[in-house]
Design a protein around this nucleic acid. Sequence first.
DNA 1: AAGTTCTGCATTGTTAACAATCTTTGTCAA
DNA 2: TTGACAAAGATTGTTAACAATGCAGAACTT
Lengths: 237, 237
Amino acid sequence: MKNKAEEKLDTLRTDPDEQMIVDRIYSAVMEQKLAPRTKLSELALCETFGVGRMRVRRALLLLSSQGIVDLRSNRGAYVACPSADEAREVFVARLMIETGIVQELARGISHEGIQSLRAHVEKEEVARKNNDRTEMIRLSGAFHVELARCHNNSVLTRVLRELVTRTSLIVALFGSNRGSTCPDDEHTSIIDAIANGQPQAAEDSIRHHILHVQNSLDLEQTQRAEPDLAKILTGRM
Amino acid sequence: MKNKAEEKLDTLRTDPDEQMIVDRIYSAVMEQKLAPRTKLSELALCETFGVGRMRVRRALLLLSSQGIVDLRSNRGAYVACPSADEAREVFVARLMIETGIVQELARGISHEGIQSLRAHVEKEEVARKNNDRTEMIRLSGAFHVELARCHNNSVLTRVLRELVTRTSLIVALFGSNRGSTCPDDEHTSIIDAIANGQPQAAEDSIRHHILHVQNSLDLEQTQRAEPDLAKILTGRM
DNA sequence: AAGTTCTGCATTGTTAACAATCTTTGTCAA
DNA sequence: TTGACAAAGATTGTTAACAATGCAGAACTT
């Protein structure tokens, strides 16, 4: 008989396939390769990932439960298109959670934590030098998830990953001109405050940083997309 | 042709059936009617809710993505059984989010918000007088979700709902003797601080309150359940 | 009697066919 | 030309059968 201690915990909850699809779509959204309102047809995803329809549908359900994808009955899955109100909610939640995280990190972070954060910013600088826009966008968002990861809290990490991804959608929708990536020096100053054990400074830095992103957006514009298209195409441009 | 303005937004993402199943299981866990490790067989759920297997499986997938249910490959779905580490994560997250919420509520809450909170505590008192244990447990948790709802932030509300529900599981697993329900006066003092516009007092109250719950638990016990059972049944009791 | 292996049953996972809905295209009438 | 209507095609939603896995009990061996 098998030893009780050898109980297998290898029975993972979600199949690798499924998680892979979810992760890939997450990444694509974060990197702004998938724009809001993009249709995600089941057939296309099946072919792309080489899996059956069931897996795709489960992945889409998970994505929709996290606000990354909108499922419309009998009409398919679309990359989510957050409203201005939803956008504000996301920023409020991010402010609350991220200020809390950096405060606590400043009160005591592991050495490896600091190192991984510095290494991250290093990568950002490289991407900037190489003018690798996709990588820059990806790393800008990932930095914030990395902060949560340093806190060693899987709940907060998961939530923050969702919020950062939705922020990508929001920037794509409401960004004035370009996908404003986080300026790298702001990340550095956040790390410095944490490393120096200054909770208040860390909180101020990240609040300033998040507000900086939010203020670069135009969340007040009357309407979006749909009417634009209609007017542009019916009117004489 | 249909008017553009009449666009139907009625295409809800999740079918009512599905959401109903999820909600019912959520409620049952919150009320501690569903204990951790309880098996949720597909057949039983199909019969209970009178729906097909697909709906049940989708509901279970959603629940598992929120840590309420564990899906074990080829072995079925079980009510989640959080580890002590996960429990600590939940409390850390709750402290961070809830202190943030009450602080901001204290800086400005709508009149209806205060009223709904007071009404909620009223209900708790009634349940207490009636010795309605189930209702007391339910309301104790719901109060915290209600705080988030007053903040008008659907993201935070959803996260907090998940955290409160997982807390029910944690209390069921690690509670010393009984399902310790939140003492009603602590809720009242939180509301008072909010109503009086005292962010710091509100934060202190809720921190004290959450820590009170956490400290009533025994998160340090060496092992749980499984080994106990083995020893009890193999040994001569 | 204890333990091991084997067989049958129950439950879950997957697939494929079918049904329902939406979108598009083409036709017709005003 | 514009609008409405209808049919064809494509996409999604659902169901049911099948396959695979795990579990429990019986039979067998030592």
